[in-house]
């Protein structure tokens, strides 16, 4: 199963290969969606972890044990596609590449796996077609 997490790394973990160890210890696939690290080596990472339920639980415990903040993201961006004008305003606002519009048909495409839940599209759509749905 796939789960999205916001991981916050305190400075103390900055010089330790926590993610690398995570992957090695558990049979887990880590897809890093967005990461930002400050000069002091503290940082946040939006990542999707893919493993069976048991391993996921262990992985989260492992991360917490290393001082990493783990927040499970259950929200999803909902889009009412039938009212869409294909206008592109949400695409202009979306930075993850989840929302795209382009050749050949120039119709809106939404790749939910790439969504980083930044919510920029919600206010950018001039028809108010986006919302949050809890899982």
């Amino acid at each position: 199963m796939k789960r999205k997490y916001m991981l916050s790394f305190p400075e103390s973990t900055g010089d330790k290969p926590v993610v690398c160890e995570l992957v090695r210890r558990y049979d887990i696939c880590v897809n890093i969606i967005q990461a930002s690290i400050s000069p002091a080596m503290a940082g946040t990472m939006l990542a999707e972890l893919d493993a069976c339920a048991e391993e996921l639980t262990q992985a989260v415990e492992f991360l917490a044990g290393r001082g990493v903040g783990v927040e499970l993201l259950t929200d999803k961006i909902a889009l009412r596609e039938d009212g869409c004008l294909q206008c592109g305003n949400c695409v202009l606002a979306c930075f993850s590449g989840a929302l795209t519009i382009g050749a050949p048909d120039w119709k809106l495409a939404f790749d939910r796996d790439r969504c980083v839940l930044c919510r920029a599209c919600i206010t950018a759509c001039p028809r108010g077609l986006f919302g949050i749905s809890a899982e």
Partner: peptide, 11 residues
């Protein structure tokens, strides 16, 4: 670059 008028609708 992103369009903010609809080419699909114009077509």
């Amino acid at each position: 670059t992103v369009p903010v008028s609809s080419l699909a609708k114009a077509r």
